[in-house]
Computed example of a mutant assay.
Amino acid sequence: MLLALPCGAATAAKAPDLASQLATMDKAATASLDSWVYTVEGLDVTAWLDTTPVIIKVPILNEKHEWQGDSRYYFKQGKLFAVQMPYGRYQFDGKGAMILWQDETGTQSELPGTAAWSTRQEWLKKRALQLQNAFAPSVYEQRLKKPGSDIQLQGMARVEYLCVGQLYALTRAEKLIHEAGALTAADNKLSGAAQARFATGWRPLAFTCTVDGADRVSHLTYQYTGPVKTAN
């Protein structure tokens, strides 16, 4: 005698929709991962890291620098998985192809193969890579942690070395200098004023930096305090 199976018992459970998956990732990251904050292209960006970024949150500002919401980039095993913005969400497969584009209501917004689809896919991938790279260890940190490193610094000298190295990475300055007494150091924190040299000239900035117990820069925010001064 054959018994009929309940409807759906012979099939795999339906995978949660994208919004539910992202909500689960948000909850897990905020509960178990430390958050880092870096200034990236003038925006104070927050990342939750498990060696590499799992979620990166980018504020959206209008022309008056008023907060309008956030963009959130989600990664699985170092690869872009999804992006959520106030006006839509996007999902990517393991090979980097965008496979879903929904508007803010969860409705399919665009079809694969269109020019708009291709343009949005490439822009999001480029932006995600830029954000990932911003939270990568600086050249200074890599040199410090290299086996047999020639960098033998301790205490606040070590903190300053790591902070300045990360500041170079984020600003992409050709050179950073500061006047004597311009920096304040205490409790693995460094802050103060510096001058950054670019191809167009020198520009003043102020920064705040924190180094964690694993010699990683967990917080580095900065803002320019004046215009570029061209060399005479």
Rank of each mutant, 00 (worst) to 15 (best):
L129V: 06
E160F: 03
F75V: 06
E122Q: 15
P59R: 08
G165W: 00
V58G: 01
G113S: 10
G88L: 15
A214D: 09
L61E: 14
Q195V: 07
S218A: 03
Q108R: 11
R197M: 10
L170H: 05
A4N: 12
V211C: 00
A116D: 10
W202K: 13
A115V: 15
L170P: 02
L111T: 15
Y90N: 07
D212C: 12
Q152I: 05
T221C: 02
P86V: 02
H219D: 07
P137M: 11
E122Y: 11
V164Q: 13
D93T: 04
D215H: 05
K145V: 08
W48A: 01
G226E: 05
A196W: 05
I99F: 11
M98P: 03
K57V: 15
K125V: 08
V58T: 07
K125M: 12
A29P: 02
C163P: 02
A47S: 12
D93N: 15
P59N: 09
R158T: 05
L183K: 02
G201T: 03
Q142I: 06
D93S: 03
V83M: 02
L100N: 02
L5N: 10
A157P: 07
W202P: 03
L80I: 00
A173D: 01
R127S: 11
F75T: 08
R89D: 13
G94S: 14
L3N: 04
T208Q: 09
G96F: 03
I55E: 09
A128N: 07
N62G: 08
S20M: 11
L22T: 04
D34W: 05
K57I: 10
A206F: 04
R172V: 02
F92K: 00
I151L: 13
A15S: 13
A180D: 08
Q142E: 12
F75Q: 08
S109R: 15
P147L: 06
Q121K: 10
F135V: 03
S138W: 01
R172M: 07
E179H: 08
A97S: 15
A12R: 10
Q166N: 12
L49P: 00
S118I: 13
M85V: 09
G8E: 10
Q195E: 14
M25C: 05
A9Q: 11
G42I: 05
K79S: 10
L3E: 04
A128E: 03
F75N: 01
